[in-house]
């Protein structure tokens, strides 16, 4: 028996919004420690890793490990039937071929349940090496979204360059060149408005705008986003899911021939 109840159901709605453009199907791996998802997009350029810890749920029961393969487009359609303040419960029997989503209004006066077929997905899991990143940049998630949106007008790629002075985002194309520089904030009233940079060595990498734009669908999840970069390795873009986990996107860089 698997059952996970989340009073803050809108977190799950937001997680799905942040996945559905990148992935059409994926497996949710459930264990007594929580729920995890790891999947690459079809082109193997990006990977999404989601973690939802058991202790972040209001009730969590997972008697035996199970992998629930889901069509994320369908799951997203179902979650869109939940109101933002609904309590969401996910339920499945052991070795079941379907999953049930229950949405309860806060006053318990409306209860809806939706059943969805599970899929048998033969998914390969990737081992992501532990990496000490050369530069770790934290910035407001909305600011990052804006920068990527703005620079996407100029070209297909964004160059992210991190130095002691700050971080620079650049794009070039037919209409011209765009550069956006962010300095580390000296002092801020609110922690979530800060730009912080931890840098061991300067890094410059080039990434496809198309993917970065899809990652920013997770902006609704967290006030801050963390970018981790090292020379010639994939970028990590991380959004926290409340205090229960994270959505992490990995993106392979563009490499000079």
């Amino acid at each position: 028996m698997f059952e996970a109840r989340l009073v803050q159901g809108n977190l799950l709605k937001k997680v799905l919004e942040s996945l559905k453009d990148l992935l059409t199907e994926a497996s949710w791996d459930c264990a007594d420690t929580g729920i995890q998802l790891q999947a690459m997009d079809n082109s193997h350029v990006s990977l999404v890793s989601v973690q939802l810890r058991a202790d972040g749920f209001d009730k969590f029961r997972c008697d035996r490990q199970l992998s629930m393969g889901m069509n994320l487009t369908s799951m997203s359609k179902i979650l869109r039937c939940a109101a933002n303040d609904d309590i969401i419960t996910i339920k499945a029997q052991d070795q079941a071929d379907n999953v049930t989503f229950v949405f309860e209004s806060p006053n318990q006066e409306k209860v809806a349940d939706y059943e969805m077929k599970l899929m048998n997905l033969d998914q390969e899991h990737l081992g992501i090496p532990e990496t000490d990143y050369a530069a770790v940049i934290k910035l407001p998630a909305a600011e990052f979204q804006r920068i990527i949106k703005d620079l996407s007008q100029f070209g297909e790629s964004v160059v992210i360059s991190c130095t002691k002075e700050g971080v620079k985002f650049s794009a070039a194309g037919d209409i011209g060149v765009g550069n956006i520089k962010l300095a580390q904030t000296a002092s801020v009233d609110k922690e979530e408005e800060a730009v912080t940079i931890e840098m061991q060595e300067p890094v410059t990498l080039t990434f496809a705008c198309r993917y970065l734009n899809m990652f920013t669908k997770a902006t609704c999840l967290a006030p801050q986003v963390t970018l981790s970069m090292s020379p010639e390795v994939p970028l990590v873009v991380e959004y926290k899911i409340g205090d229960m986990g994270h959505v992490r996107y990995y993106l392979a860089p563009k490499i000079e021939d």
């Binding site: 193997h44 350029v45 990977l47 990995y250 021939d257």
Partner: peptide
């Protein structure tokens, strides 16, 4: 010119 790398280059299948 630059080319798009894939993650298979960096991450091994477990």
């Amino acid at each position: 010119m630059s080319r798009q790398a894939t993650l298979d280059t960096f991450f091994a299948v477990r």
